[in-house]
Simulated scan of single mutants.
Amino acid sequence: MGLIHIDLFTTLDGVAQAPGGPDEDTENGFEFGGWQAPLIDELVGGQVTSGMAGMDALLLGRRTYDIFAAYWPHQEEGADGSIARLFNHLPKYVASRQSRSLEWANSTLLGPDPGVAVRELRDRHANIHVIGSLDFVQTLFTEQLFDRLTLWVYPILLGSGKKVFADGVVPTNLRLIEPAVTSPKGAVMHRYAIADGVPGVGDMSA
């Protein structure tokens, strides 16, 4: 059975809205689109690229799909050419509540029940990556439909904006599967695997 990887960038206070650019997602008057850009460095870029090893499908929410589809098909000859070629040729699955046409090559709309559709994708692919897609990710968290979670946490506080765990989650154990990586500009990468059971409790006064 294949693995579902969720890859997210977040501020220290959990805001994950529009890390990439000013116009990426201005919903609710969000004014800090592109907050990740000043904190990118070679280490972050290298780790993000290496984290794509073995990726054989993309699973995206509607908004992230539209952003990617407008950008990556035109980048194969640029500095991001290797990523563009990968993304352009991979199968891409899109979660959307509305029927719509998908112009980006190799793109498929998920069925009306995303939970069922995601489970079926595990039978077709080894490593399916969900990048961004913050609204859709809430469904995956709620239904525990993921196997790996990579969080890049950046040393800034924004206060408002869509949060990583906006809708709450099912109590879940996670296991750190490799040492945390800290970039020169203070971003910290945590990579987790979902673990069995539910979080335990105890009494520290005993």
Rank of each mutant, 00 (worst) to 15 (best):
P38I: 04
V118R: 11
M55K: 09
A69R: 13
Y71C: 03
W72H: 09
L43A: 07
E103R: 10
L43C: 02
E103K: 09
E27V: 02
G46C: 07
G78R: 10
R62G: 00
A57H: 05
G81T: 04
T49R: 15
A53H: 13
P38N: 11
L60S: 08
A95T: 00
R122N: 01
L59S: 05
N28Y: 12
R100T: 07
P112I: 01
A70K: 15
L39N: 06
D113S: 12
L121V: 01
E27Q: 10
M52K: 13
K92S: 05
L86F: 05
S101Y: 02
S99V: 00
E76V: 10
K92F: 04
A117G: 03
R97G: 12
T49Y: 12
E42F: 10
E77S: 14
P112L: 04
V48L: 11
Q75E: 15
G81D: 09
P114Y: 03
P73M: 07
A95H: 13
G81M: 09
L102S: 04
N106W: 04
V44C: 11
Q98P: 01
G45H: 09
Y71M: 08
S99Q: 13
S107L: 09
P38L: 10
F32N: 15
E42T: 13
G78T: 05
G34V: 02
Q75I: 01
G115L: 04
W104R: 10
G61C: 05
E76D: 13
A70W: 08
D113K: 10
A95C: 11
P91R: 12
G54H: 09
A105H: 13
V94G: 03
R122F: 00
I67H: 06
R97C: 03
Q36E: 10
S50H: 13
M52G: 01
H74V: 00
D80M: 14
A105C: 01
G111A: 05
W104A: 03
I83A: 14
A79H: 13
D80F: 10
W104L: 06
S107R: 13
Q36F: 11
Q98L: 08
R85W: 03
L59G: 04
G115E: 11
E103L: 07
L58I: 00
I67E: 06
R62W: 02
W72G: 04
F87H: 06
P73L: 05
A117S: 14
M52T: 02
S82Q: 13
G111Q: 09
P114F: 02
L109R: 12
Y93Q: 08
R85Y: 02
H89D: 15
T26A: 12
A70G: 15
V44R: 12
G51A: 11
R85L: 03
T49M: 14
R122D: 01
